[in-house]
């Protein structure tokens, strides 16, 4: 089984090498585990570090945002016939020990498997009240739109099978795509499962939602995206029918 780890990286000069080396130590039976870093137009030395260390990377000439970077990874996975693609943050928050569990979920028949901080109390991740409150609202909205409860709709640690890789390489939201894509795949009747994972605090850099204004804007934007996604998924349906 060919598995591709998609690592979006924007200004991750301090953590990217540690992330890559943590992935290189992962060995799973009958799985060829490759990785690709998507340098999203970083303005620090991320690109130079990737070049100097002969890392496997794709460099976007301009910053497209998380959605554009991740979609580039899905396009690469699709064109190189990978069986599974796993999103993995470049900032050291995700634990590579859970990669095997995500792949196992896909083998069991899930189309998309999400590493969730809130399924069981495993996480060392100290979530703030506001973060949990935001996550609860998004979970509620997703449940309202799809009838399914997703405990951690903003988790970026997720695995996708070939069907979902094909869907995402054609159509993927550019900004804050995680909750939006969950609604799309659920509406299309794909099987989504969640497994409990531990997440760490980011080892370096700053969250893009550090200020209350940005966090509020994020909530408004994502909530709207969920509702719009639930109301209209014609293009994705056409892609599915084509498959």
């Amino acid at each position: 089984m060919k598995v591709l780890m998609i690592i979006p990286a924007y200004n991750e000069e301090k953590s990217i090498l540690n992330t890559i080396s943590s992935l290189k130590s992962v060995k799973i039976k009958d799985v060829q585990l490759d990785y690709i870093v998507i340098n999203d137009g970083s303005t620090d030395h991320t690109l130079e570090i990737l070049e100097e260390n002969h890392c496997h990377y794709i460099s976007l000439p301009t910053n497209l945002g998380i959605g554009g970077a991740v979609q580039t990874g899905y396009k690469y996975a699709y064109r190189n016939h990978y069986d599974v693609a796993i999103q993995f943050d470049g900032d050291g928050q995700h634990d590579p020990n859970y990669i095997a569990s995500l792949i196992e979920e896909i083998k069991k028949g899930a189309d998309i498997a999400i590493g969730s901080r809130y399924v069981e109390k495993l996480s060392e991740f100290r979530s703030t009240f506001m973060r949990r409150f935001g996550s609860t609202i998004l979970s509620f909205l997703i449940r309202l739109c799809t009838g399914r409860r997703i405990y951690d709709p903003t988790s970026g640690f997720r695995a996708a099978n070939q069907k979902v890789i094909e869907l995402f390489q054609e159509e993927y939201p550019m900004d804050y795509p995680e909750p939006d894509t969950i609604v799309t795949v659920l509406k299309l009747g794909y099987r989504v499962s969640e497994i409990p994972v531990k997440m760490k605090e980011r080892t370096s850099g700053k969250s893009s939602l550090s200020s209350p204004i940005k966090a509020s804007f994020y909530m408004i934007k994502v909530s709207t995206a969920i509702i719009v996604s639930a109301l209209s998924h014609r293009k994705e349906k056409e892609i599915c029918q084509k498959n």
Binding site: I38, L60, T62, L64, G68, Q71
Partner: peptide
């Protein structure tokens, strides 16, 4: 145009790879 530029950017990067 934003969508078109994103697609072009991705294609340039993938072609370089």
């Amino acid at each position: 145009q934003k969508i078109a530029i994103s697609i072009l950017t991705q294609e340039v990067a993938l072609s370089n790879k």
